[in-house]
C-alpha cells in the first residue's frame, strides 16, 4: 500500500508573457512518500522553484491535480489555501525572509499568531523550535544582529514551529558560506530523520542533494 503524502498527477504550469504562453512545467506526475527527503535539481529556468511553489500551495497549476494528504489543493479558495498552508507547510527561503523589525523569538512566533494557542503555549513552542536549531540563547536578537547561517536557522525554526507535515526549502544554502551550509543541511537532515518531516528542497548544490534520500532532476519543465 502506497504511503504517499504528496501526489502530482499530470501537472502543467505555464505563464502568460504579453501575448505569449510560456510553458514552465509539462505534465509532471510523481509521488512523495511521507517522511521522504526529496531534492529537486536542475539548471536555472528548469521549473524547480515553480514546482516547489505548486506543492507548497503558493501558486496554482494550469492543469493537473496536486493532492497533499488527500486534499486537492488546487481546488481550495484563496482563504482556505492560506489556512491550509499555515497548518501543513513550513517554508525555508534562500534569503531567509525574516522581518527585520522583529526579534528571532517574534519572527518564529509569527505563524503561531494565526492559531488559538495561548501566549504561554506560543512561548513554549517558540523556545522549543529555537532550541532545536540551537539558537535558544539568541531569542531576543534582531536579524541584523545574526549571521547568515543563524538567520537561516531562525527561518527553519519558524518553519517547524507550527509542526507542519511538509517543509519546503528553496535553495536554503544558496546564500551561505560552506560551513553554515553544512550546518543547515545537517539540521534539515535531523528534522527529516528525528522529527519525521517530509522535506522537499530545491538546490543547485550536488553536495546538498546528497543529504536528501531522493533526487529528481528537472530540465525545461520535464523530469529527466
Amino acid at each position: 500500500m502506497s504511503n504517499s503524502i504528496i501526489s502530482l498527477v499530470n501537472v502543467s504550469k505555464s505563464y502568460k508573457r504579453d501575448s505569449f504562453n510560456v510553458p514552465v512545467l509539462n505534465h509532471l506526475s510523481f509521488d512523495v512518500e511521507s517522511g521522504e527527503f526529496l531534492a529537486l535539481m536542475g539548471p536555472s529556468g528548469s521549473g524547480k522553484t515553480t514546482l516547489l511553489n505548486l506543492i507548497a500551495g503558493i501558486d496554482r497549476p494550469s492543469s493537473g491535480k496536486i493532492e497533499i494528504n488527500g486534499v486537492d489543493i488546487a481546488t481550495l479558495s484563496e482563504s482556505s489555501l492560506a489556512k491550509w498552508r499555515a497548518n501543513n507547510v513550513g517554508f525555508v527561503f534562500q534569503f531567509y525572509n525574516l522581518l527585520p523589525v522583529l526579534t528571532a523569538f517574534e519572527n518564529v512566533e509569527l505563524p503561531l499568531l494565526l492559531t488559538k494557542l495561548s501566549k504561554a503555549d506560543r512561548k513554549q513552542r517558540v523556545e522549543f523550535a529555537l532550541s532545536v536549531v540551537g539558537l535558544a540563547d539568541r531569542m531576543s536578537h534582531y536579524p541584523k544582529q545574526l549571521s547568515g547561517g543563524q538567520e537561516q536557522r531562525v527561518a527553519i525554526a519558524r518553519a517547524i514551529v507550527t509542526d507542519p507535515t511538509i517543509i519546503v526549502a528553496d535553495e536554503p544554502t544558496g546564500d551561505l558560506d560552506k560551513n553554515s551550509a553544512v550546518e543547515i543541511l545537517t539540521l534539515l537532515e535531523r528534522l527529516n530523520k528525528e522529527m519525521k518531516k517530509t522535506i522537499i528542497m530545491v538546490t543547485h548544490d550536488p553536495n546538498a542533494a546528497k543529504i536528501a534520500g531522493i533526487t529528481k532532476h528537472l530540465d525545461k519543465g520535464d523530469l529527466v
Binding site: A56, I58, S79, K83, R85, F91, N97, P111, L114
Partner: peptide
C-alpha cells in the same frame, strides 16, 4: 512587497 509575500505564504490573509 517581499515581506507581504512572506506573510501570505505563512498563512496570513490579504
Amino acid at each position: 512587497t517581499r515581506e507581504y509575500a512572506v506573510f501570505r505564504t505563512l498563512g496570513f490573509s490579504a
